[in-house]
Nucleic acid binder design. Structure first.
Lengths: 220, 220
DNA sequence: GTCTATACCCGGATAGAC
DNA sequence: GTCTATCCGGGTATAGAC
């Protein structure tokens, strides 16, 4: 057994490797990044990755884990409205939380996640967005609330998909949009405006879905 | 100069290579697929790729081009409503066209495009969705029409993004959803239902955006 | 225990001989 | 058109220096 992930072996070297690795993995994906490039950027020896993480895959997993933890602790400190607040407010807060996760310029998580969804590396078997399980559960709750009496499981799924897809869009596209030169979200203000817009759009959409459903149920 | 893309050098071998390549590129992406795997699948010699396409990259470009042409000729023969039809119908037809492009199980284009957007290979410089320029232009037109008098450029952008994001979602996610075991769209009927749902949702959303805009303009 | 230098083996792409 | 050789870069294992 190698001293791969022992928390006791905490070193600055380990962190330096992680910092270098997350940037390169995010830039080019798992397969395309060479360990030699990582150690060069980190200023360490070729074997350091093997020593600290047991190999390239171990390093990759450590990178993903650290990014997930950071993102979780970040969203945890975002303002969360009271559960008695009106749905509109709660939805807007949730959308903002999702967008912050997906578009944040200070984290490499969105890029890593996008790469992982499109081209799973096997590091996370069920590579999906189950990462954000808490957010998804809350979204379901809100959708059901807006749909009211007509909400069956299928209707909820449709609503969740409609809202979520508008947010995930930026996870996949923010880099591509930037590349083309489209207006991106530099500051927090722009993100808040976007969240408000998506909320407005989605609330109306959800209600329309529900009223359609109501009509269909009558004719049956 | 090598006889790389000359239409005259048409051979069955060339097509066999293309068929094998598109499947493998779509499965694993450009970098991850080995030339050896392609020729093995095609039943040709190792050097055949070099001979017909001048190299791996040349083959990849040829694959993309062929898929794009096929997709274009396919959507061209989809029913297109009269421009005098009500917006709802035109929007639904457009959404269906987009979804067909993004979710079609008989084409590898969506997967290739998703890979290319997230991880551009340089084969297409402005790697975006400008591919579907015609669809985007029509979408802008419809959005402006729904928004009516309050539509400025920014408002149109917001509307287009909201509708488009719901469709592109499936380009990125359909494989991941399938992997998790979520209900996917096996038949054309399911896709039509989805298109109807997205249209319903989006029409309501667009109108809400417009009325919000109207209110804002008053208070200014 | 932490870091370094080197050697190994594999697989990929391309080019040249036939 | 085909087969073979060559070269390169990849990740990993080993042995040794601090």
């Amino acid at each position: 057994m190698l001293p791969v992930t022992l928390p006791g072996s905490s070193d600055a070297t380990r962190e330096r490797i992680l910092d270098a690795a997350v940037a390169l993995f995010a830039a080019s994906g798992y397969e395309a990044t060479a360990v030699r490039a990582i150690v060069q950027r980190a200023g360490t020896n070729l074997n350091s990755i093997n020593y600290y993480f047991g190999g390239k895959l171990g390093l990759y997993k450590a990178v993903l884990q650290r990014e997930l933890e950071r993102a979780a602790s970040f969203t945890a400190q975002l303002p969360q409205p009271d559960s008695k607040s009106p749905v509109a407010l709660r939805l807007e807060a949730l959308v903002l939380r999702l967008l912050t996760l997906f578009v944040s310029t200070h984290s490499h998580l969105p890029r890593l996640a996008a790469l992982e969804v499109v081209n799973p590396s096997g590091a996370y078997a069920a590579g999906g967005l189950d990462v954000h399980g808490a957010e998804q559960r809350e979204l379901r709750k809100i959708v059901r609330e807006v749909q009211g009496d007509v909400s069956d499981d299928a209707a909820i799924e449709r609503g969740v998909r409609a809202v979520l897809s508008q947010c995930v869009y930026f996870m996949f596209m923010s880099d591509a949009l930037q590349r083309v030169g489209s207006p991106v979200f530099a500051n927090a203000h722009a993100v808040r405006e976007l969240a408000a817009d998506i909320t407005e759009f989605s609330l109306a959409g959800l209600r329309a879905q529900a009223s359609k459903q109501r009509k269909n149920q009558k004719t049956e």
